[in-house]
Amino acid sequence: MSDDSQRPIVVKRIKKGGHGHHGGAWKIAYADFVTAMMAFFLLMWLLGSVSKGNLKGISDYFNNPLRVASQGGTGAGAAESLIKGGGKDLTQDEGQMKKGGAEQTDIAHDRKRLSELKRKFEALMEDKAKRNTKLAQFKNQLRLDMVAEGLRIQIVDAQNRPMFKSGSSELEPYARDVLDEIARLLNDVPNSVSLSGHTDAQQFAGGLRGFSNWELSSERANASRRELVNGGLDDKKVLRVNGFADEVPLDTKNIYNPINRRISIVVLNREAEQDIRDQAGMGDSDATPASAIAAVRPS
């Protein structure tokens, strides 16, 4: 029988293998996630701070980048660019958040100012109508409403109470009284104004080749402008004078209705005023205050 104490002792050491190499793929995935989140929050910031014009420019660029790059467009880039492109220079130091907030505040103040002017005008005409029989009769021919361009004041003809003498731009005395009252109210706000004349569809004997409703509506609008200035309106506040002939009737079912003969005075909001300046070929950099703009008269 062998002696077990003499047997060699064998010690087995088990080496534990390490984890397999992952290759760092998780780091790339995490970096992509962080980048995507940063882009998302940057997009949210831009949507909340960039003006509407610049947003439209960005949208136009992604929809058709070649056209915007070659022709420009609203909000397409710097205002100083030789290529026509609306909006402010995106390289300016002033922050977009600050500018966007200021624009919204100005627009809100503008709307509030025009709404207060509407209420003030209605109260004044109510008071004047009680003390003046002519204005009392004329009250129903005044129409006030808020439109996209601002506060619109329309003075329409009635069957037996026209604003002007038949076929002429000579104002009736009571029409002058109303325009004088309007003039004093318009000076209470800094907004510019636009005037337009309208006729019914009754044509002159010469037709469009002679003196027509186009000339008549334009002359009546300009005669109203002169009376407003005579009544105290600052003449620099008039930004546009138009004649529309019988193209925009109030009563589309009866184009001969007297109410289609009217003068429309629009107290312009900031956006409408800027649109008119842009249409006349004036950008933001060329625009001067309303006090330095002469009336745009039809040729």
Rank of each mutant, 00 (worst) to 15 (best):
N269T: 00
S285Y: 11
G57R: 00
A136H: 14
H109E: 09
G210S: 08
V68W: 02
L47R: 02
T91I: 01
E149Q: 13
F41R: 07
A136R: 13
E103D: 13
N160I: 06
I182K: 01
P162V: 03
L151G: 04
D180W: 08
P162W: 03
V241H: 05
P190S: 09
E122R: 05
G87E: 00
M1F: 11
A129P: 01
S166Q: 15
S285L: 15
G197K: 01
S299I: 13
K27W: 14
Y61G: 08
M97V: 09
G150Y: 01
R209V: 13
S291A: 08
V296T: 10
S192C: 15
L66R: 11
A201N: 06
L135Q: 07
R7P: 00
M37I: 10
L239I: 11
L55C: 02
F121S: 12
K98P: 00
Y174G: 04
I276Q: 05
N160H: 12
G23S: 03
S5Q: 07
R119C: 02
N257L: 04
G24R: 15
K128E: 14
R143Q: 05
L208F: 14
M37V: 15
A201P: 00
K52I: 07
I14T: 13
P258H: 07
V10A: 01
L142C: 08
D127T: 14
A31L: 14
A183P: 06
E273Q: 06
S51I: 00
A272W: 02
Q104I: 08
E219M: 07
V238K: 01
G232H: 02
F33M: 15
G210Q: 05
I255Y: 11
R113M: 12
R184V: 12
D127I: 08
